[in-house]
Write a protein that binds this DNA or RNA. Structure first.
Length: 155
DNA sequence: GCCAACGTTGGC
DNA sequence: GCCAACGTTGGC
């Protein structure tokens, strides 16, 4: 299967590019997603080797800041079983987990972040789910969109 | 911090 | 199966 592309949003106050750079192997488990549509992509859609646009949400302005690569896919989010975790979900059972994660490894930091206003202002990017439908923290990106965004970012 | 968009939940 | 209530997301 051809390599596919995704955009993953994270609030940098919780987990941002600086955290990822500091992580062991520059790799992190992408936990905490609690939206079913996003969950389905994490569980069923994303494959090892797929490309990731790392996006800082809740930032001024929000922006794509780096590319990353998927290094492990589709396993249960351990935080859902942890009563002390903010991600705890009492409805999750070990044998029937509700929430899933992938592992991503930092690839390249963009030379200049590609901001949401910039994306909105780019005619070729009008079909991005980021624009068409907000509030989805895991979303597919086309190969064309990937190429345009990374180019705007100076890669 | 507000609130709009959207999805899930649950009473009936 | 409808739909109002509720929770989450995320731009502003």
């Amino acid at each position: 299967m051809a390599r596919r592309y995704w955009l993953l949003k994270s609030d940098p106050d919780t987990f941002g590019i600086e955290h990822l750079k500091a992580a062991r192997d520059r790799t992190t488990m992408w936990d905490g997603v609690r939206n079913f549509q996003a969950r389905n992509y994490l569980r069923d859609g994303i494959a090892v080797g797929d490309g990731v646009l790392f996006y800082h949400s809740q930032w001024k302005p929000p922006a794509v800041v780096a590319t990353a690569r998927v290094v492990r896919t589709g396993y249960p989010d351990p935080t859902q079983f942890d009563p002390r975790s903010p991600g705890h979900d009492p409805r999750s059972k070990r044998e029937a987990p509700r929430w899933f994660v992938v592992d991503v490894q930092l690839d390249r930091e963009l030379k200049c972040p590609v901001t949401l206003p910039q994306i909105r202002a780019t005619p070729e990017l009008q079909e991005m789910i980021l624009i068409r439908r907000g509030r989805l923290s895991v979303q597919p990106v086309t190969a064309d969109e990937w190429r345009i965004v990374t180019r705007l970012g100076g890669l």
